[in-house]
Amino acid sequence: MKDKKKIDIEFSEKRLESLFGKRNSFPVPEDYFNSLPNVVMQRIQAENTNNAIQKNVHFARKRWLIPSISAMAAALIGLLFLFAPFSGSFYGPNEQKVANLDSNNSLNSEYYFSHILYNLPYSHILNSFNQDGENYLDSVIDSRGLIPDGALKEEEVIDYLYYHMSVYDITQY
């Protein structure tokens, strides 16, 4: 019974072959198989480079967190000293709000900056950098050719903060 089935299939297969053949009728561009290995190797090299770039960008972005927080604190100090002589109180409303967190209600700037440094979620800082900021970061990284220390320099972060973020942006958290 088993053999009959096998013979039946073999017969059908032979009949198909005799009627329609087994020819490969799918045209392939000339030289395609000569060039394919090179194409594949080039793609592999490009993907390896892309992976390296992504790793560097990821690393650069992570490293950027530390100087960006420091830069925000530095910018705030600068701005506080700049505007303090013209205001009635040394501390603005946001600083007052933070200062009020102090149980002794003492107006302590050190407390304020430590609050920013230690209590402000990183995600808030990252979210505050809009698309322009991302582009800015990318352009700086591109201009450096993604060398291993491709992270932003502190002064570049400060520049960014000055040009893209208002005091309100920084102090609203």
């Binding site: 198909l16 009627l19 329609f20 053949g21 020819r23 009728s25 799918f26 045209p27």
Partner: peptide, 15 residues
């Protein structure tokens, strides 16, 4: 489309 398949009518029928 002959760009994709250049067999005869019978072969096309089988495909």
């Amino acid at each position: 489309n002959p760009l994709h398949f250049n067999g005869d009518q019978l072969e096309a029928k089988l495909q």
